[in-house]
Amino acid sequence: MRVTLKVWRQKNAQDKGRFETYELDHIDEHASFLEMFDVLNEKLIKEGKDPVAFDHDCREGICGMCSMVINGRPHGPLPRTTTCQLHMRHFRDGETIVVEPWRAGAFPVIKDLVVDRSAFDRIIAAGGFISVNTGQAVEANSILVPKENADKAMSAAECIGCGACVAACKNASAMLFVAAKVSHLALLPQGQPERYRRVRNMVAQMDKEGFGACTNTNACEAACPKGISVANIARMNREYLRATLLAED
């Protein structure tokens, strides 16, 4: 098939950036979106041009590295799908496809479609953990977890940290990412001792990074390749309210 690509090109963080248009022919409809970009880059290199920089690694939808806004949607038109798992057969022959990087003040563009998502790491470092040193653990089955809670915690923990929620949100809010981790740990008995500290510190770091607030539009859930539920955001709201009202400091 044949496609026209309008791709965001930006040399570095200081560059203003602009769209460039590329024509590609003979693309196999079974190629993944990133494999189509591989073909584009091989072509650009052979033409002596600079290939498009984009983040990717596992190409099986779990590492969370790939990050393209395709035709106005993070990770493209398919629900619950990362860019690397999106295939060209979901596009029309001859279609023009617009590709942009994640856009958020907290995710500055490094080059072309590559953005800096280290804000997420800092949010985790602020409290997204359970404080237990290696060797301090008790016998695993001495901690009983109701199956329902374990399942809910797992559903929240499936987050791959790609940032599509931020990219999709009109406010570039990181609520879904933060809420997924807060929920995961708040639902487990192991997470209780640090429950208040965790949510307050993580929210404080999130605000410091410059993410927006939540308008409950559900755009994050719709874009999330793992289908993380907005119910987690409600849970975080509850956790935070409780923590700020009840913590004695």
């Binding site: 009983l144 399942d151 192991q190």
Partner: peptide, 21 residues
């Protein structure tokens, strides 16, 4: 020890209805 450590960290392993792993 690995399983103990990971459970303590909050790794959401699959559980039985009784709450055990």
């Amino acid at each position: 020890n690995i399983i103990d450590q990971c459970v303590a960290q909050g790794v959401p392993f699959a559980r039985e209805y009784g709450g055990v792993l």
